[in-house]
Simulated assay, not measured.
Amino acid sequence: MKAFVLHGQRDLRAELVPTPIPGPGEVLVRVRRAGICGSDIHYFVHGRVGSFVPKRPFILGHEIAGEVAELGPGVDAALGGRRVAVDPSIPCGACAFCREGRYNLCINMRFYGSASADPHVDGGFAEYVLAPAANCHVLPDGIGWAQAAMTEPLSVAVHAVMRSGGVAGKSVLVTGGGAIGQLTALAARAFGASTVVLADIAAFPRDLAVQLGADASLDAADPDAVGQGLGLVPGGFHVVLEASGAPPAVSLAIALARRGGTIVQIGTLPAKVTAPLNTIMARELSYVGSFRFANVFGIALDLMASGRVDVSPLVNAVMPLDEMAAAMDRAIGKDGVIKVQVEP
């Protein structure tokens, strides 16, 4: 099969590799659509994602949807030929975190298109991908390929909203207007937030967020961004969801969270970030992390199938897999795009 294999920093090669053969409990999925995520960009541009450093060439891509093309031994025949979204998480199921139901924290997690475990798990920037049958969620009627491949990033957003302790009836600020930020704003609205505001340094994501239902946007680069935010929601926001991974956004989040409020860190930050811990203490702010997702993949699909969340406007570019290099450049440039997807 054709695949795009990462060999190093800015070294993504088109190759013919053996088509995987499904073993017991596994299926072979013919990839119909795969999204380019921020982590894919980090691996391509920087050759690593935080402490995850590739030890061998591997295939990126974890936002995957396709058709079940072949069944391994023991897999229910009813899954054959079905349209599915693939959950890229493969936890061990045995560690304390898995037993507690927080499998996103699994110490032995294997994740598609990631160097977090060795051997690495090949992802979906290929014609086919191997998957545990249990990770294949059959698509509801009416869900197209573009939506299906957004199930994973929407799951990240849903998990983050849940980590806040609930947003129903509350004011919510989302910092960062990329794919995760936009999806987080949509999820917050779907879960009953009374006010949703999105902050970003660029006009395009701010305007898009308002078009998709946010009550207002905030120019994070404005020297008076804090004043403008407090003008929108006097006293500050009940919940701030930080999706940019930019240190200035952390400062903005703390400044605009109301006393007793909650800040959820979704974006991956640089190694060294300073924060006013005394402010967090004195205002009794809750600062919590949100890593990947757990137990929400089906919820994300249901939100799209019900029409509560429409992700279609976020998929701004769909390119052939053969044009993977150009697709990556488009995703890196962020020129008028939120999500770039490729299709074999």
Rank of each mutant, 00 (worst) to 15 (best):
58 F>S: 03
94 A>D: 14
26 E>M: 14
215 D>V: 11
260 G>W: 02
182 Q>M: 15
51 S>D: 10
236 G>P: 04
223 P>V: 12
187 A>C: 10
171 S>H: 09
39 S>R: 04
324 M>C: 05
23 G>L: 11
189 R>H: 05
269 L>M: 14
47 G>V: 11
334 K>V: 04
333 G>R: 15
304 M>V: 00
5 V>T: 05
69 A>S: 07
204 F>P: 09
260 G>D: 02
41 I>P: 01
254 I>Y: 10
72 G>C: 06
61 G>V: 01
207 D>M: 08
186 L>H: 04
174 V>C: 14
198 L>N: 09
153 P>D: 07
9 Q>M: 15
286 S>L: 14
263 I>H: 02
216 A>V: 01
218 L>H: 08
146 A>N: 12
220 A>H: 14
198 L>K: 10
75 V>H: 01
128 Y>G: 01
291 F>S: 07
28 L>C: 03
160 A>V: 06
74 G>S: 07
177 G>E: 09
22 P>S: 06
166 G>Y: 10
11 D>C: 13
264 V>P: 00
167 V>K: 12
258 R>T: 12
193 A>W: 03
187 A>T: 12
231 G>H: 13
29 V>A: 05
81 G>W: 04
208 L>S: 05
278 N>M: 15
232 L>D: 02
265 Q>H: 01
299 I>Y: 00
310 D>T: 01
52 F>T: 01
98 C>D: 08
47 G>I: 06
272 K>V: 14
175 T>M: 08
288 V>L: 15
307 G>F: 01
59 I>P: 03
214 A>K: 04
203 A>H: 08
5 V>Q: 09
242 E>A: 12
274 T>I: 00
148 A>P: 00
58 F>R: 04
115 A>M: 04
197 V>G: 13
317 A>K: 14
336 G>L: 10
181 G>F: 12
55 K>N: 06
186 L>A: 15
167 V>T: 11
82 R>E: 09
250 V>P: 06
31 V>E: 03
45 V>L: 15
130 L>Q: 04
183 L>S: 12
268 T>K: 14
178 G>L: 08
176 G>T: 12
131 A>T: 00
322 D>V: 00
295 N>W: 04
342 V>W: 08
154 L>M: 07
270 P>T: 09
340 V>M: 05
1 M>C: 07
254 I>W: 07
230 L>C: 11
251 S>Q: 15
133 A>P: 10
88 P>S: 05
213 G>K: 01
136 C>W: 01
239 V>I: 15
89 S>N: 15
197 V>M: 14
192 G>D: 12
279 T>S: 14
135 N>W: 06
195 T>K: 15
192 G>H: 13
312 S>R: 13
135 N>P: 03
64 I>N: 07
212 L>T: 04
